[in-house]
């Protein structure tokens, strides 16, 4: 992006609407000039940074640090000073397992169920998401009629709210839904998909791919479009077959974007909550209970709520996310260097 000059002077209506704002800004100016005289120009930098830093501090940094303290306390009291210190007890509880592959052998079995579900979900969702969005990006990168229309088609669900996404699909997958209608036409009996452990798990994977695929397609498409076309012309002159050109030119040059996308998908998949919560509510049973929902329910929703335990679980999840983000930043930097060399 670069600084373009905004076009037009704005309608007179807009000007009229701006008048009170202008007046307010001018009114602020006089006291701020006084502040500027006191602080100097450099001090004004602090002034401009302050509101953001304040909000950051209170609503991001503070909770981030409190979280560690929280995870070492027990009881149901809300405020930290009222809570009793229990040391690493919450962590010990989370890790109290006879056999880590079998959630039922664990003291906190729902946690391990959620971890296992999330792991399966991430594995399946990430690989399918990458596959589908890569195919779509490659197709949208072809010489197509009305490409921006097709791009919009795949992008459309990205903007929908997770709640809407969940409801749309809940409606489609229910007994009288569109899916059963289609299958009925093919001679199948209606089935309540979301009451089936396996199908509802598949539904959460499918629906989350449906909702977010367009976003990653867009990033991959941008990467594809950045590949200089003369490379393909050169390859064509050398008699390279298209499949080989894909493996030897497209894929290596797309790799920086692809890696970033993979990590982004991973980070988001680990935190999956909203649409699943609306679609299946974690059920049937605990078949689609993922880690964020476990934290939410342990922290807020259940009768036996245990915020300390939820905090401990969230720190574990945070650790995974930090590792993934660092990988992403590392990959991004590598990609930047590559770009700079070009």
């Amino acid at each position: 992006m670069k600084a373009d000059v905004p076009k037009g002077t704005g309608s007179s209506l807009g000007e009229a609407a701006m008048a009170p704002v202008r007046l307010a800004m001018a009114a602020i100016d006089a006291p701020l000039r006084w502040v500027q005289r006191r602080l100097g120009i450099g001090g004004m930098a602090t002034f401009f940074l302050l509101p953001n830093m304040l909000i950051f501090g209170v609503f991001v940094l503070l909770p981030f640090f409190i979280n560690f303290a929280y995870s070492m306390t027990g009881g149901t009291a809300l405020f930290l000073p009222d809570r009793s210190f229990v040391g690493g007890e919450q962590y010990a509880r989370l890790f109290d397992c006879a056999n880590y592959t079998d959630p039922n052998s664990c003291a906190e079995d729902t946690f391990w169920t959620a971890v296992g579900n999330t792991a399966w979900f991430v594995l399946l969702q990430v690989s399918l998401m990458i596959l589908f969005s890569l195919i779509t990006a490659l197709i949208l990168n072809r010489e197509l009629m009305a490409r921006s229309f097709w791009r919009a088609v795949f992008f459309f669900p990205v903007l929908l709210s997770p709640v809407v996404v969940g409801l749309i699909w809940k409606w489609i997958l229910q007994r009288q839904g569109l899916l059963n209608f289609g299958l009925y036409g093919l001679g199948f009996d209606p089935y309540t998909w979301l009451n089936d452990r396996n199908w509802s798990f598949a539904a959460t994977v499918g629906v989350s791919i449906w909702a977010h695929m367009g976003f990653y397609t867009l990033i991959l498409l941008a990467g594809l479009q950045a590949i200089p076309k003369d490379l393909y012309e050169a390859a064509e002159m050398d008699g390279t077959r298209p499949a080989r050109a894909f493996w030897r030119i497209t894929l290596p040059l797309l790799m920086p974007n692809l890696l970033v996308v993979i990590v982004l998908v991973l980070i988001r998949a680990v935190q999956i909550f909203d649409e699943v919560y609306v679609l299946t509510g974690g059920g049937p049973g605990t078949s689609t209970l993922y880690i964020t929902q476990y934290i939410y329910e342990t922290g807020f929703a259940t009768q036996l709520r245990n915020p300390g335990l939820a905090a401990a679980a969230s720190i574990l999840m945070g650790a995974v996310l930090v590792v993934l983000t660092l990988v992403q930043l590392g990959l991004g930097r590598k990609g930047e260097k590559k770009g700079a060399r070009k």
Binding site: I66, Y70, L80, T292, M317, G318
Partner: peptide
């Protein structure tokens, strides 16, 4: 430092801090 701090918060999504954030929001 400020820039890094802001970027670092990209690593702290809501789902990680929701429990203590809730207590802070309540306290306020």
């Amino acid at each position: 430092f400020a820039m890094l701090l802001i970027l670092a918060t990209l690593m702290v999504p809501l789902s990680v801090i929701m429990v203590p954030l809730y207590s802070i929001v309540s306290a306020l």
